[in-house]
Design a protein around this nucleic acid. Sequence first.
DNA 1: GACTTACACTAATCTCGGTTAGACTCACCC
DNA 2: GGGTGAGTCTAACCGAGATTAGTGTAAGTC
Lengths: 281, 281
Amino acid sequence: MQKFEHKAKKFHVNADPIRYGQTGVAVTPLLFRKLSVFAQITQEHIAQLSAIEYGHGTLPAGADLIRAGQQYGSIMLLNKGWAIRCLVRGNGRRQVANFILPGDFMCLNAIVLDHSDYDITAITPISYSQFRIEDVIKLIERQPILCAAILWCTSREEAILLEHLVSLGRRSAFERVAHLLIELWNRLKILGLTDGGSFEMPLTQELIGDCVGLTSVHVNRMMRAMEAKGLIVCKYKPIQRCQITNLPGLEEIAGFEDGYLHFRQMPQRSRRALRELDRAE
Amino acid sequence: MQKFEHKAKKFHVNADPIRYGQTGVAVTPLLFRKLSVFAQITQEHIAQLSAIEYGHGTLPAGADLIRAGQQYGSIMLLNKGWAIRCLVRGNGRRQVANFILPGDFMCLNAIVLDHSDYDITAITPISYSQFRIEDVIKLIERQPILCAAILWCTSREEAILLEHLVSLGRRSAFERVAHLLIELWNRLKILGLTDGGSFEMPLTQELIGDCVGLTSVHVNRMMRAMEAKGLIVCKYKPIQRCQITNLPGLEEIAGFEDGYLHFRQMPQRSRRALRELDRAE
DNA sequence: GACTTACACTAATCTCGGTTAGACTCACCC
DNA sequence: GGGTGAGTCTAACCGAGATTAGTGTAAGTC
């Protein structure tokens, strides 16, 4: 880390209205798909969530959904497109905390926190659903499983954050970039948005750099190096698609272990406890 | 970040049984003190939590409470002493995610996650309370306010993690160390564990380095520099006490803003929604 | 077709912070 | 009182990655 005088650019709007994520597909299938990785979520549960959706919106690439310091409005669910959660320091240095993919909630901690610590910015055109905080509270009260599912989302997000922390603190530039690519691939895979080793990736190298704490220049060097080693193919500019040609090799170098993504069932004991609550109704 | 070949040391036990944190004080006051920052928690609420405590334990400095990859056992609450939550990479490089202070929960996400991603290691002798996961689930079901309080703890922890991410990605070595010191001071202050600008800090420089992604050598350089500028006094070795002599100056340099610590009341709307749930019983 | 914008990519230089190695201090212990 | 160990501190060296300042290219716009 050195000076980083470049100011975070605010509005590099992508004029063309390409839809990232599965085109024309509503939220619920993606969320359902994600949540079923972890618990016996039924379409019925998702329907209950859909029932309290009070609106939805779209935003062009580059627009902010919420700014740091701002009071939380509603809880949102990203349906299409990609967004970033990022923190901007006083001097303009920007840190992308993570990438928000379709099926991810946004501002979930509005339930207990007053204001946001971060900006959420669309990096492609996005569409999202909105939920009133009160409605969500009431729903998760009635539906323990849904409550657990939401808790799972936040816990998983924290785990991903933790892994980014390790990247920034204890991984080399090469490892960081590699690790990010593998993570994105994994997260998209459970959504069914990958095609073999290949996936749509609407990121600029600067954005990647802002996420892994490097300059775009250095991200570029690392990606050139990966291609040279035959690990990836990713030469479109601006990057739109990335293909991992040698996943095991990449995982090896990055020291990637997928445990932190928690692609597992909820622990037994919690399942039992929750079932009891369900019966109690 | 470069090579970092030093293996994470496992057992640098502190032989002397000094009690960090308020000596001889049980959990509940500290937790109560922390939670009341955020909601109208009553002693009654805390009593309900105490009621489901099923055991407590102590551990010498250097001992692990849980290891990465291990299945979660119970949820715990740190009563006395300090601990760290840290991730160790295959090659032995260690990243301290955060410091766990008295009044902090540990393994809270055992509710939804199966296994831990991190080690929790005592860095002083510690004592803690244990709760069965099922009991906690049942309790928060009966007590929406307590549920919100716990959610607040995890959300706040995530916010702290986010701030660490910014440190690692976008702050200079000097800023990182300064930021950490101010954060610790703030967190201890709401627990009533500070004395003016001064507080007990049972950390080695290596531990600080493992948290902010630096070597102990460089942490030392930075702390020397801070003393030279008259910002802190922290000369005991091993560090036992740190005094911030010029807080505004330090905050200025570190770019510290306390918003992320969320020393605020829960948002209005959530308070209202939760009150309604309470009446419903 | 000229102008503009956004991004990828390259090369040269510089610096922050890692590495290595060892001295110093204090506490404990046989 | 000498030995051991844990931690602090200093100095010399060096390299990963930032910085700066470009060139190249594709696509949109007037």
